[in-house]
């Protein structure tokens, strides 16, 4: 079971969290014209590669905050975690 460092609560087991998918997906701004391709990229298309993956988790049975987790999809190793509004360098 993954052990995730919630930036708000500390180390917590995975069963307190729910997964939220690729964190690099950016929603197009409201009221902005977007092409079909841009919209499909947002709604459907995912890189989902092997290796480092920045992804969203919500600490649903804890502080309910959405966080970003940098994790290796091949080994499940977690490198870093970030608050929702933290920039990922």
């Amino acid at each position: 079971m993954l052990y995730i460092n919630c930036p708000h609560c500390g180390m917590r087991s995975q069963n307190e969290f729910s997964y939220g998918g690729d964190a690099s997906v950016k929603r197009p701004e409201l009221n902005k014209e977007v092409s079909d391709q841009e919209w499909d990229n947002f709604v459907y298309n995912r890189k989902s590669l092997r290796g480092k993956h920045l992804e969203l988790w919500q600490h649903i049975s804890g502080c309910r905050q959405w966080i970003k987790v940098e994790r290796d999809t091949a080994t499940h190793e977690i490198f870093r975690t970030f608050k929702a509004d933290e920039e990922v360098a």
């Binding site: 919500q58 309910r64 959405w66 929702a84």
Partner: peptide, 11 residues
């Protein structure tokens, strides 16, 4: 609820 939190916290 998660849906609302997602948009409020991230988007």
């Amino acid at each position: 609820l998660s849906h609302l939190e997602y948009y409020l916290q991230l988007v």
